[in-house]
Design a protein around this nucleic acid. Structure first.
Lengths: 237, 237
DNA sequence: CAGTGGTCTAGACCACCGC
DNA sequence: CGGTGGTCTAGACCACTGC
């Protein structure tokens, strides 16, 4: 994508970084700027809209547009949907080993409810302990309805992302997920496998993944060590 | 705001709900539809864009636009910035009492670093235990730089939202926050005050709030009982 | 190739703000 | 009131997809 809007946006960022427009300063009017950049006003406004969403400018109706202080870069973000593998990489870790167990079993109640299937329907349950530097850092349990993943799941050859596997081998693209963030109880068996040190705490992400038609694809429990992973979020009103 | 785009959007949703356009079905082309609704194509596309962001339609370049299954409503969301008071209300609770302590003290290191001030700079530290049904459900600690909140903070009369107070009394509008989600250690003093029952767990939100110019305004630690509050998030690729 | 959505345009008019 | 941003328009041309 190299739309004119994006080009203008980059130019504006460069100009701000170079100090041509300073923080706090008001930009010339949209009509003026669009003529200067030799694009239509709507196109120029497209660039402004992106900058506004990124929090680099403040647009005041009837007043003007102002350059503001850029927000600090965010480390890892929960806003975008990433695979667990990506989260491990973005934590600066290299996944060393992952113990896998795969079984076809009746679906437990919680997963069934979230998936919108009848409790007891057969699902593949994929369980992985993921290690970095020979230490367990994450435990994932995935519930995949057999009726969606019939064949092609008998001898899966993962070395990484389940999202990618599902996408490439089964042609199902996962675009969205509903995530519940919770703190597991200490007596939770799964949680205990990660509690290595006294200062270790564990966070649990319960996620329902949807395909492009918003149909539930699989449900997952991701137990993640909070002394290894950080969870950030930029919230807006 | 009652722009034409929004009106068209509502009409489309109504038509989908009424079954005029069914899930999975392809909509007529944009040109066709815009004529039918008697608006320009760009205006009609504005409505489509909103529906796409809400996950109600799937737009495929060169192919067409399709109605998809609506996502389930989300309970409480972390995506948008709300005050703690709002979070309590949206959990279906009524705040009964809040014990307040306010002191002017040198800023501790972590808060100072996040606020971008020198450790030891004087800050107001506002600490509140918030109760519902006579039980503590949340503990908030707020760090507010004295140089921003000089006067007007000596005898604050809260009964609710700090965000609202800061906005109305001091004229600073808070638009964004960077939030880190973490699990406190069990030996954390603040956390312990909320651990009422064996099945109680506590989640900690560390938040840096920015004004409309992206200047840090205050830093807060919110300890929240996870058996009382749920934390949801809709993630997109 | 025909039909779809994606982008851009030049211009119009409206809504808001400060003087 | 004049200047700003917000919305809408009719039309053009491009990019992608499936046949």
């Amino acid at each position: 994508m190299n739309s004119k809007c994006e080009q203008i946006k980059k130019q504006l960022i460069d100009m701000i970084d170079q100090g041509i427009y300073r923080i706090g300063e008001q930009l010339p009017s949209e009509i003026h700027m669009s003529k200067q950049f030799q694009v239509s006003r709507e196109t120029f406004r497209g660039a402004l809209k992106m900058l506004e969403e990124e929090g680099r400018i403040l647009v005041k109706h009837g007043v003007g547009t102002f350059v503001i202080r850029p927000l600090p870069p965010i480390k890892s973000t929960l806003e975008r949907l990433h695979s667990s593998s990506e989260m491990i990489r973005s934590a600066g870790l290299t996944e060393s080993e992952s113990m896998i167990s795969l079984a076809k079993l009746p679906c437990p109640e919680e997963a069934a409810e979230r998936l919108g299937i009848v409790s007891g329907t057969p699902v593949y349950i994929l369980e992985r302990i993921r290690k970095a530097n020979d230490e367990p850092v994450m435990l994932s349990i995935n519930y995949l309805p057999v009726h969606l993943f019939g064949i092609g799941f008998e001898q899966p050859t993962f070395s990484g992302s389940l999202l990618q596997f599902v996408e490439s081998k089964l042609g199902v693209s996962v675009n969205r997920a509903d995530t519940e963030i919770c703190v597991p109880l200490h007596i939770d068996r799964n949680c205990q496998q990660l509690l290595q040190y006294p200062q270790t705490t564990v966070l649990l992400l319960k996620q329902l993944h949807y395909d492009e038609g918003n149909r539930p694809v699989f449900y997952s429990l991701d137990y993640m060590r909070n002394d290894v992973f950080t969870f950030h979020l930029r919230r807006t009103r």
